[in-house]
């Protein structure tokens, strides 16, 4: 029953997020701050993880090719497909659910505990619009992060394959170009925009509606990570079925 109640509350929250807008002069500053915190602040970990995941995908593919009839460019091909279709958009988003999601939940949750949200409401500010809307706008830049993750994943794969002696640079690059389907990139970025919306709103929901003290902020962050991940995985399945199925 509580799940159905939360589901309904989430959509009521979304309605409130997009109503009674904060003054643009204030909103502008909030959006830039969120871009700095959520997007720019995540680049380091995304670059690091994508690079090594790309490398691991290339090595594992190369080690599993023991039939001489299978072309060596398959290493580049598999790396490209894995990174563009799944690792960059979905795997990165799960990591972001932990990093950005728990940051959003704990920061909003702490504002709830310390009555800062009540202070906003008493002043006549729509606290949901003030707190959540800038995060949604900032995370609409998330596809750029994923583009960087794709680039770094493929670069990591190329370095691992070429310098590990699993493939030549020419073969790897040929693999990157074979049967390239632009729609796969469109599919990946479409997923990313949906994931960005989930990443901004579900953690905000758990932070905003939490009750209790510091301990509950921690519990809310954990619940936020679990449910954000679940939502991303379900959305991933549904979007894949709709766009590629």
């Amino acid at each position: 029953m509580i799940y159905i109640e939360n589901f309904g509350r989430y959509f009521i929250m979304l309605k409130e997020v997009f109503s009674r807008h904060t003054k643009w002069s204030m909103l502008k500053n909030l959006i830039f701050k969120e871009i700095d915190d959520l997007i720019y602040g995540s680049l380091g970990i995304i670059i690091f993880i994508s690079f090594f995941i790309g490398g691991v995908v290339a090595i594992q593919t190369a080690l599993n090719i023991d039939n001489p009839l299978i072309p060596k460019y398959l290493v580049g091909f598999t790396t490209r497909q894995s990174v563009i279709l799944e690792f960059a958009p979905t795997f990165t988003s799960i990591i972001m659910a932990g990093k950005v999601g728990s940051y959003i939940t704990s920061s909003i949750g702490t504002m709830r505990v310390t009555e800062q949200i009540d202070a906003l409401e008493v002043m006549g500010v729509n606290s949901l619009n003030y707190l959540v809307f800038p995060k949604i706008v900032a995370l609409m830049l998330y596809p750029f992060v994923i583009a960087i993750a794709m680039y770094m994943g493929i670069l990591g794969g190329w370095i691992a394959a070429v310098f590990g002696g699993y493939s030549t640079s020419a073969e790897f690059i040929k693999g990157l170009q074979v049967d390239f389907n632009t729609f796969h990139v469109i599919y990946a970025f479409t997923k990313t925009i949906v994931f960005a919306f989930i990443l901004a709103t579900i953690p905000s929901f758990y932070g905003y509606y939490m009750k209790g003290g510091a301990l509950e902020v921690g519990k809310a962050s954990t619940s936020s990570f679990v449910w954000t991940s679940v939502a991303i995985i379900i959305a991933n399945y549904l979007l894949t079925q709709m766009l590629l199925g």
Partner: peptide, 18 residues
């Protein structure tokens, strides 16, 4: 909303924006 702009509130824990 207009009425709330006529109100000032001092919270127990001050509730200043960190």
């Amino acid at each position: 909303t207009e009425l709330r702009q006529e109100m000032g509130m001092v919270f127990q824990g001050s509730a200043l924006f960190d």
